[in-house]
Computed example of a mutant assay.
Amino acid sequence: MHPSLIKAKIFATIALLILTFSFTLPMIAFHGTLNKIEEGKANEVSSVSKSVWNLYNKGRYKSVATPKDARNNLEKMIEEGAEIGPASLPIWAVSLEAPNYPKEAFPEGIPVFFHFDGYSGEVHEMNTINHYVGMDPMWAGGHIERAIGIYALLFLSLGIILFIAYDKKIFNYIMLIPAALPLIFIADYSYWLYHFGHSLHDWGAFKIKPFMPTVFGDGKIAQFTTHSYPTIGFYMLLLISFFSILAFFAKQKAFKEMEEK
């Protein structure tokens, strides 16, 4: 086998493993769990879902309203009625600071985290603020993306497996999809920020003009200071993109050199 083909398969395998353990596996294990909890069917949540959630949520931010002894334990959080987010890695973090949210009570401001399959953090508090300024609740955005996310990742994983298993030119271009994941996320994230900032309602007690929320960095909206930065999941996407690009060009090189012989 051509050395570059071997390299391509190794790079693609690394990309697949990162994708699987960062997103696909926890999304599969936790799929439908939040719906069961919201519908009062917590007794139907499997032990696998609980174990995976507990594992992936170690060290993650939990709402300040969550009792300390319940954090990182899904069963206890359900009992406490605490805010529960997805198991998959968070991709982007947004926090908000305001005079009426003192550092003593909210040391990290009002942080929320964006996942492929939902949100975590102070989601309830952020929705309260959104309502205050006439903005839709967070769940109103990205509903299609959240619904198809797990299936899209499974399809993508299958594509990478085909790339690894078969040395066909047509399968090589599959790797351009995982290579583009960071850009796809930022584009979708930016679109929804624009939508939220330009679809304000009259119900807001505090009137503000349509605006574009900060995509990256620090911003200011009325009396609120915002911070918007990538978090661990986005860095995993960058790694997936990096190894996918390496896999693509390694196989392209192999095809070219084999054709020249």
Rank of each mutant, 00 (worst) to 15 (best):
L153P: 01
I164R: 01
A152H: 02
F206T: 15
W192D: 12
I174P: 05
L156N: 09
A250R: 10
S190N: 03
Q252E: 14
A12H: 02
E145V: 06
H143N: 15
I232T: 14
G32D: 02
F206I: 15
K169D: 05
Y61W: 03
W53P: 03
L158S: 10
G85Y: 03
E80Y: 03
G204P: 06
L246G: 04
L89W: 08
Y166I: 13
K76D: 01
P67K: 05
L154F: 14
F21Q: 02
K261F: 08
G118S: 02
A205Q: 15
I18K: 00
A247P: 02
G121H: 00
F255E: 15
A250Q: 14
P90F: 15
A179L: 07
T24M: 06
A12L: 05
P107A: 08
I6H: 14
D202A: 12
A70D: 08
N130D: 10
A105C: 14
G32V: 07
Y151V: 01
P90L: 13
K251A: 10
N130S: 03
A152Y: 01
T33R: 05
K220Q: 08
H195K: 05
G204F: 05
H131L: 10
I240R: 04
H31K: 14
F30D: 14
I78R: 04
K76P: 07
L239A: 05
M138V: 12
W192Q: 06
H131Q: 13
Y194N: 11
L19N: 06
L246P: 01
H124P: 10
